[in-house]
């Protein structure tokens, strides 16, 4: 029974990716001069050189963390999609601690990353408390917080932390004690290990602890959870705070490892990509790891295709949204699922 359902889930995944790639290919047929070449580059690009392979792994780091952040709120059926703004504000927090905290080796980096998580959860606090206190829609409020985060951080960075000697609009460079190291010549982000470890940890939390069980019960049936004695409001509040901390940490890791100053003048988009990562993983933290790798692969493949052929890599966003629609289409293959369940029920009678 379980195996049949798993097989169905897998079939759904294959069909979804197949349809999305087909649609992508059709787009290329109309746009590209050599669609097959471009498509090949899109599919195999990240594997062609070591540099590109590391680029793909590095891209998976923030995606894994935002995907993780979103998967736990989605587990509790809370649509707080403010990961984008939380990541941005977390990155800002990292910058403050990197520039202002005492430069003690190791400790400085830890303080910086904790600061990022703190700022991320601070940003998640607003939609969380509004939801807990007045049941205000966390969807709208978290989206508004994304915009506010963007404008506020830009204002603060450009006016108070801007490095005027640098050519571009960036902050001062972080001192070396706040750097997260990168490995090898092609700069592999060591945050990858943090992200993987965190995914496993959160997966353990969700499936092996009492609190994780409460989160899942609240998501599956809030009323049932309430009447069985779970403080649903508390669970929904804290799950958002935790999600914000993870998203904020993602911003901190990205800055301390890859850029070592605040460099963003627009929202980097990792928070929105995290939505598809979480949905592809079916909100399972363990599956977030392969899911983030998959999306990062598509992203970098599209970038490489874009660099060589002049096709806008944004096509991959279109593919992602088609995948979201198809993966969450419950009725797709639903008949087969029902058949499998019915068959099993007959057997046990």
């Amino acid at each position: 029974m379980k195996r049949t359902l798993l097989l169905l889930e897998f079939t759904r995944f294959v069909i979804t990716v197949g349809i999305a790639l087909l649609i992508g290919y059709i787009f290329l047929l109309f746009i590209a001069d050599e669609p097959t070449e471009a498509f090949k580059l899109f599919l195999t690009g990240p594997m062609t050189t070591q540099r590109r392979f590391f680029e793909f792994l590095n891209n998976a780091v923030p995606l894994m963390m935002t995907g993780l952040a979103l998967s736990i709120v989605f587990q509790s059926k809370v649509f707080n999609i403010g990961a984008e703004g939380q990541l941005f504000f977390g990155a800002f927090g990292a910058m403050i601690f990197a520039l202002k905290a005492p430069q003690i080796p190791w400790l400085h980096l830890v303080i910086t990353l904790v600061g990022a998580a703190l700022f991320g959860s601070l940003w998640a606090f607003v939609p969380a408390i509004l939801k807990a206190k007045w049941k205000a829609s966390e969807l709208v409020s978290s989206l508004m917080m994304n915009y506010i985060s963007y404008f506020l951080v830009l204002f603060l960075v450009n006016n108070y932390f801007r490095d005027k000697t640098a050519g571009a609009l960036v902050s001062y460079r972080f001192p070396q004690s706040a750097w997260l190291s990168t490995l090898s010549r092609y700069r592999l982000n060591s945050g990858l290990f943090v992200a993987v470890a965190l995914s496993v940890l959160v997966g353990w939390l969700l499936y092996r602890t009492k609190w994780g069980y409460q989160i899942r019960v609240v998501g599956a049936n809030k009323k049932f959870g309430y009447y069985s004695g779970i403080k649903t409001i508390n669970v929904i509040f804290w799950v958002q705070i935790l999600s914000g901390a993870i998203a904020g940490l993602a911003g901190g890791i990205e800055l301390t490892a890859m850029y070592r100053r605040f460099v963003w003048q627009s929202l980097p988009g990792y928070g929105f990509d995290g939505i598809i990562v979480a949905i592809l993983a079916r909100n399972n933290p363990f599956l977030v790891i392969p899911s983030a790798l998959f999306i990062a692969y598509l992203r970098i493949g599209a970038n490489i295709m874009g660099r060589t052929t002049g096709i806008a890599p944004e096509i991959v966003v279109v593919l992602q949204s088609i995948m979201i629609l198809l993966i969450t289409a419950e009725a797709l293959l639903g008949r087969f699922k029902q058949k499998a369940v019915a068959k099993e029920a007959m057997k046990s009678e």
Binding site: I279, I315, V316, Q320, I322, I324, L325, E330, A331
Partner: peptide
């Protein structure tokens, strides 16, 4: 197809943001 209404809407927002730039 019974896609969740909120997720479907979010997906469409992403879709147009990507498709228009592309």
């Amino acid at each position: 197809l019974k896609t969740d209404l909120v997720i479907g809407g979010v997906a469409l927002n992403l879709l147009s943001s990507g498709l228009t730039v592309f």
